[in-house]
C-alpha cells in the first residue's frame, strides 16, 4: 500500500517522470508477491514433507531429520488399520458414486442446458443448494434420516450421502459443456431421421464423452477426499481412507505416530495419482471452482 501515494504522486508530477519512478515502485511489490507465494509453498512443502519423512523414519525426536530410515511402518499400517479393506471400500464407494451421479446428473444437465420452462431457475437453485451448504449442516439431518431407514452404517448409506453433493456437481460441470454443443447438430440429426435414442447414441454420446469423463474424474477426486459426509454415515466396515485416517489420528498415542503417517502418505499417494489423471482431462481451476457464476439476479 506504500506504493499508492508514490504512484499517484508520480502521475501528478508530469509525464516524463512517470515511467522510471513507477518501475522502481513496482519492483518491491513484485518481490512481495513472489515472496508470499514462495513462503506459502515452503510451508506447504513442510506440511506434506514432514508427513512423508516421518513415515520413513526409524525414530524422530527433537532433531532435523530421523535417526534412520525404514519402510516397516507401511507394513504395520497396512495390517493394523486393515487398509486393504479400507481401500477396497473407498474404491467401491467412489466408483458407485461416480456412476450413479452421472446417470442421474447428465440427463438433468441436458434438460437444464437446452430447455426453457417455467420454474427452471427454482430447480437450478435447488440443485445448487447442496454444494453451497456446508456438509455438516445438511449431513447431520441426512445421517439422521439414513439411520432412521436403516441405510446408514454401511456402504449404501455412504454412497447415498456422497451422492448429495456429487449429483449437483455433475449438473454444474456438464451444463456449460452441453451448452457449448450446438443444439442445431441435434436438430440436424433429427432431420436426418434419427429418433431421440439414435440422436443420443450416435451424436450426443460421442460429443459428451470428454465432458462426462472430466466430470467423472472430478467427482472421483472429491468423493475420495470427502470427509464429513462419509464420517457421519459410515459404519466400522464402511470407512473410506480419509475417515480411517481421521480415526487413527484422533486415537493418537495408541498407535505409533509413524504408522499413522504411513497411512497418510498412502492416502496422499492415492490422491496424487487421481490428480495426475484428472489434470490430463480438466484444467486445475475446475477442481476448485465448483460453482459456476450464478445467473445474475
Amino acid at each position: 500500500m506504500v506504493t499508492t501515494t508514490a504512484a499517484t504522486g508520480a502521475g501528478a508530477a508530469g509525464a516524463p517522470d512517470v515511467r522510471p519512478r513507477r518501475r522502481i515502485v513496482a519492483r518491491p511489490a513484485a518481490w512481495f508477491v513472489w515472496g508470499a507465494v514462495i513462503f506459502f509453498f515452503l510451508n506447504l512443502l513442510g506440511v506434506v514433507g514432514s508427513v512423508l519423512v516421518s513415515s520413513f523414519g526409524q525414530r524422530w525426536f527433537n532433531s532435523w531429520l530421523p535417526d534412520g530410515y525404514t519402510s516397516k511402518w507401511y507394513g504395520e499400517a497396512w495390517t493394523e488399520f486393515a487398509l486393504f479393506q479400507v481401500i477396497k471400500v473407498t474404491l467401491e464407494v467412489s466408483l458407485l458414486v461416480v456412476g450413479l451421479s452421472l446417470l442421474i446428473g447428465v440427463p438433468a444437465a441436458y434438460v437444464l442446458a437446452r430447455r426453457n420452462f417455467p420454474g427452471k431457475r427454482t430447480i437450478y437453485l435447488v440443485f445448487l443448494l447442496p454444494i453451497l451448504m456446508p456438509p455438516i449442516t445438511f449431513g447431520i439431518p441426512l445421517a439422521t434420516v439414513l439411520y432412521k431407514f436403516g441405510l446408514a452404517g454401511h456402504l449404501s448409506g455412504v454412497v447415498l450421502a456422497n451422492l448429495v453433493p456429487s449429483v449437483p456437481f455433475v449438473i454444474l460441470t456438464m451444463t456449460p459443456f452441453i451448452e457449448q454443443i450446438d443444439a442445431r447438430i441435434e436438430s440436424a440429426a433429427r432431420m436426418c431421421g434419427a429418433g431421440l435414442r439414435s440422436v443420443f447414441l450416435h451424436v450426443l454420446a460421442p460429443l459428451l464423452l470428454p465432458g462426462m469423463l472430466a466430470s467423472a474424474i472430478l467427482v472421483l477426486v472429491r468423493t475420495v477426499g470427502m470427509f464429513e459426509l462419509t464420517f457421519l454415515t459410515a459404519g466400522p466396515d464402511s470407512q473410506t481412507l480419509v475417515v480411517a485416517l481421521y480415526y487413527s489420528m484422533s486415537a493418537a498415542g495408541i498407535r505409533a505416530q509413524q504408522s499413522v503417517d504411513a497411512m497418510a502418505v498412502m492416502y496422499t499417494a492415492m490422491m496424487v495419482v487421481l490428480l495426475v489423471i484428472a489434470l490430463r482431462y480438466v484444467n486445475p481451476t475446475q477442481l476448485v471452482a465448483r460453482v459456476k457464476e450464478e445467473p445474475e439476479p
Binding site: 506447504l44 489420528m249 503417517d261 490422491m271 487421481l274 477442481l287
Partner: peptide, 18 residues
C-alpha cells in the same frame, strides 16, 4: 490444487508434525 484435494484431515496431520 494439491492442498485442496488432500483436504483438511491430511493437512491436520501434516501441521501436527510441521
Amino acid at each position: 490444487v494439491v492442498p485442496i484435494t488432500l483436504g483438511t484431515v491430511l493437512t491436520a496431520q501434516g501441521l501436527l508434525n510441521f
